[in-house]
Design a protein around this nucleic acid. Structure first.
Length: 908
DNA sequence: AGCACGCCGACT
DNA sequence: GTCGGCGTGCTC
């Protein structure tokens, strides 16, 4: 029991010695050849290409090792690309410098390195940026400029070296200019000084000061000249495992020689199992560490630092055992289990058909074989249920890996993945880069979900695409699970006729890459990669895609009946409520019957703008071209207006700022508005709101869902979040307040997305013993998507119609899209840059690429930056060189930021 | 990113 | 005539 409170000792579960982490000095212990050079890819924005460094005597490194190197005045992170035994001609020996140290070794096994190369190339992103994204934050350290108050100011610089006790605080008061002092300092300088004096250490990072004080640069110059502050570079401190002092009992003989107090300590330690954290033992014995050190000195116990994992521990103590499978599940599992080599599997299972159980049972035997698995989910916070279930089934072998982990947690989890033990990683899209060895299976759950695509910082990768590459390189199956597969996936897993196309397209993309890489043997000349490609030029076994279907729910539960309500008729009948009569009746019944319901609202803000009914004035964000959304944070608090793009917030004006009219209200039906309407019309109904306002904090999803599951409320009101994998058996009613907002998005994927969202929401009900019912309110009941959702078994006809449209217009999956995005503070400069780039695209257009734009983005200004874009439609037969696209960057002035989004999902 | 070199406006 | 602004270019 006390032992369980300690982390398993390094020798048992976390073999530190085998981990590729070495400290700056440890690495010198490895002896070998001397006097070589290394080419290093440095982690410095605006710098690409490799730099050559000298290797300190006795130090050996290999391609893929992560280093700390001097670069200009600072120390930065870098990755070894190649080891050189001779310097190329013309190298200026004078400028060669030696590396500072090794941060980590062996992070990049060949297949993993290959993935990073492919991502860099396919998504037109500098390799270093891809590496930075894949590594835990902070691993690639860099030195930091810091500013501190000078010690010697005023009283002379005598006391510097003596190091004795200092009366620092007494001196510090003399630093600000006293009244009688001849020199006056500017307000900026005074601000900086005050800030520094307010801190305990008198020391802040330059970055922090710049953020706190506008125009900090001026003030700093002043203070530096006066000698009141000093500026210095702090060398990087790489993230390290967290250490804690542990005390272990090693000898109990001759205890009588010790003092009674010391004997007592030993007895306590023994009673606790012979091992305790130092702090715990001190607390338990009411003693000091001096006492313990004395005992240790006599050889009775040892005190040593031991690694602790910062990763969140699994709270679930429940265990879960495999469930009996339905016939369909069994067929699917039987098809998956014998797969060897790379095979892409589409598991098309209706909502509630038990896909998770298939995943679990597919993974179980792999773990026993010592293999690992990656499970990707759209958003980890939204699916505590899934994580719990995996934990309950596989216990400690489950790791959760996502971007919301703290740096320390992420680092520790990352290290644990490297140990090579069989484990299951559950995570969001970035978990596709989990450095697991010996992968046996990759699963993408809710494969159609757009959150698998990254669209903000480059690389704008799609986890599904990366998963395909990874599964192929690791020669393992890939399962794409969904009730509403994306059209891309659907087409790729259809019978031979379509399959040919998907494969050709895919191969083409890869071949273009490989060829190009041969031609310019850039940093890519890392040796493991080349070896791999030679051995495996066709990337090993590539089986035909497999389509598996789970057409029915578990335990023969029926799919919910979907009732479409025409809201125009409701209005005609004089019903001005946002709830149709049908929905009103259902809500009333809900309360009486003790069943639960979900009310789905389109989006959290979009429709709740604030405007004046007298003059029509709408409050807009001063930094973005969008209206501000109405938010009431607490029932009592004053409402605020908030921009959903830049988070600008202001108080809600009492009267219209334009015409002073007091008829100044918010409109639309956001979650808050609907909740209020519910309170008015159904005062007895207990409502729980589930949107990003109420679930902002860590663990809020889980607690809200738990409360709902416990029956604390009758109705859960929420947005898109409700569509993602929530499994609540008591829910028998789903209400969709207005499907229309989704239908009319000006996006080629609008229909597909609407179909997916509505089907997923509808699928939240009837998962328990009682059948479910869906009420879908709309102003366009005849829309084909609504019809398709209503007959949800008929996925195929809907897809066929949609595919014809896509083919006609060369949209994915028939043609590829590339979005070039420009943004900058000056609208004119952004626009002319876009135009110049457009002109440079002429050669592509001659190859048959269609160019749309340049055009201002749908929301032209976000956070004071103007945004323009160019959309390229690339026919499946045309290959585009990544280096050509990357070269467009050179046409952009530094004031315009340029981003390339390959296969964009959001093109508005 | 940081820092150096380097070219044009307000001061002794 | 200098000091000092911050605009371009380099960092092995």
């Amino acid at each position: 029991m006390p032992q369980s409170r300690l982390h398993p000792s390094p020798s048992s579960e976390l073999p530190v010695s085998e981990l590729p982490i070495v400290s700056g000095t440890d690495c010198y212990e490895q002896t070998g050849q001397t006097g070589l050079w290394v080419e290093v890819l440095v982690d410095c924005p605006g710098v690409q290409g490799v730099f050559t460094y000298g290797l300190p005597v006795g130090l050996m490194v290999q391609p893929g090792d992560i280093l700390s190197v001097p670069f200009g005045a600072q120390q930065i992170g870098g990755v070894v690309v190649r080891c050189l035994t001779a310097l190329p001609d013309g190298t200026n020996l004078a400028q060669l410098r030696e590396i500072d140290g090794v941060i980590a070794r062996g992070f990049f096994p060949p297949a993993y390195w290959e993935i990073l190369l492919r991502v860099a190339e396919y998504y037109c992103t500098p390799l270093m940026q891809v590496i930075r994204m894949a590594l835990p934050t902070g691993l690639l350290g860099r030195s930091q400029r810091r500013i501190k108050l000078s010690q010697e100011q005023g009283t002379g610089n005598r006391e510097q070296g003596t190091g004795g006790r200092e009366q620092g605080t007494g001196n510090r008061e003399q630093k600000p200019p006293l009244d009688g002092m001849p020199c006056t300092i500017s307000t900026v300088a005074q601000q900086i000084l005050t800030l520094l004096q307010s801190s305990k250490t008198g020391d802040y990072s330059w970055q922090y000061l710049q953020r706190q004080v506008p125009n900090a640069y001026r003030g700093l110059q002043e203070l530096l000249k006066l000698g009141w502050v000093e500026s210095y570079l702090q060398p990087p401190t790489p993230i390290r495992p967290k250490q804690r002092q542990a005390v272990t009992l090693i000898n109990q003989a001759d205890v009588a020689l010790l003092s009674p107090r010391q004997q007592e300590v030993l007895r306590v330690l023994q009673r606790q199992g012979g091992e305790l954290w130092l702090t715990d033992l001190l607390a338990l014995c009411q003693t000091s560490s001096t006492t313990l050190k004395a005992i240790a000195q006599k050889g009775y116990l040892i005190i040593q630092p031991r690694e602790v994992l910062r990763s969140e521990s699994s709270e679930t103590t429940v265990t879960d055992t495999p469930k009996a499978l339905t016939k369909d599940q069994a067929i699917a599992l039987a098809a998956i289990q014998p797969l060897a080599g790379y095979t892409s599997v589409l598991l098309h299972g209706v909502t509630g058909s038990g896909k998770t159980e298939v995943y679990l049972q597919a993974i179980a035997p792999l773990l026993d074989e010592g293999k690992s698995a990656i499970v990707l989910v759209p958003e980890i916070g939204l699916t505590p249920q899934l994580t719990d279930r995996f934990r309950a089934r596989f216990g400690d072998r489950v790791c959760v890996y996502h971007s919301a982990l703290s740096d320390g947690e992420r680092y520790d989890t990352w290290r644990q993945l490297l140990t090579g033990t069989a484990q299951v990683v559950i995570g969001t899209r970035s978990a596709i880069f989990a450095p697991l060895a010996n992968l046996g299976l990759i699963i993408l759950d809710e494969e159609h979900d757009s959150s698998f695509k990254q669209d903000q910082p480059s690389p704008c990768y799609h986890a599904r695409t990366v998963a395909q590459w990874r599964a192929e390189l690791e020669q393992c199956p890939l399962i794409l699970g969904s009730a509403t597969p994306s059209l891309e996936t659907w087409v790729a897993h259809q019978e031979v006729s379509n399959q040919g196309m998907a494969n050709d397209e895919y191969r083409m993309a890869n071949q273009g890459m490989a060829n190009k890489r041969m031609a310019n043997q850039e940093p890519f000349a890392i040796s493991p990669t080349e070896t791999l490609r030679e051995q495996n030029s066709e990337f090993g076994i590539r089986n035909s895609p497999v389509y598996l279907s789970l057409p029915a729910r578990v335990q023969a539960r029926p799919m919910p009946a979907i009732e479409v309500v025409d809201m125009r008729q409701e209005l005609g009948r004089g019903n001005r409520s946002i709830f149709s009569q049908s929905l009103q009746a259902a809500l009333n019944h809900l309360h009486e019957s003790g069943e639960q319901g979900i009310l789905f609202i389109q989006r959290r803000g979009h429709s709740t703008f604030v405007s004046c009914r007298s003059c029509g004035y709408v409050v807009m964000c001063p930094h973005c071209d969008v209206s501000l959304a109405y938010h009431q944070i607490h029932a009592e608090a004053r409402p605020v207006l908030r921009c959903h793009y830049c988070n600008y917030t202001q108080a809600h004006p009492e009267v219209c700022p334009e015409c002073q009219s007091s008829y100044f209200k918010h409109f639309g039906s956001g979650t808050q508005r609907v909740t209020q309407a519910l309170e008015q019309e159904f005062p007895t109904l207990r409502v729980l709101r589930f949107d990003s306002d109420t679930t902002r904090t860590k663990g809020a999803h889980r607690s809200l869902l738990t409360r709902f599951a416990q029956g604390d409320a009758d109705l859960l009101v929420g947005t898109q979040m409700l569509t993602k994998g929530i499994d609540l058996p008591q829910v028998t009613l789903v209400g969709i307040v207005a499907a229309d907002g989704l239908l009319h998005l000006s996006d080629y994927r609008a229909s597909e997305r609407t179909f997916q969202v509505l089907t997923q929401v509808a699928g939240r009900c009837g998962r328990g013993d009682r059948p479910g019912r869906v009420i879908l309110q709309t102003y366009s009941p005849d829309h084909p998507v609504i019809a398709a959702v209503q007959q949800q078994q008929q996925y195929e006809p809907f897809v066929q119609t949609e595919l014809e449209q896509r083919k006609l217009l060369n949209y994915p999956p028939y043609g590829r899209l590339i979005l070039l995005k420009f943004s900058g503070l000056s609208p004119g400069v952004v626009q002319t840059t876009a135009a110049q780039v457009a002109a440079a695209l002429q050669p592509l257009q001659e190859q048959g690429v269609e160019r749309l734009g340049p055009a201002a983005a749908a929301i032209e200004r976000v956070a004071r930056r103007y945004r323009w874009q160019i959309l390229l439609k690339v026919p499946a037969t045309v290959a585009i060189s990544a280096s050509f696209l990357s070269s467009l960057r050179d046409l952009c002035p530094s004031s315009v930021s340029f981003a390339i989004d390959i296969d964009p999902l959001n093109i508005g």
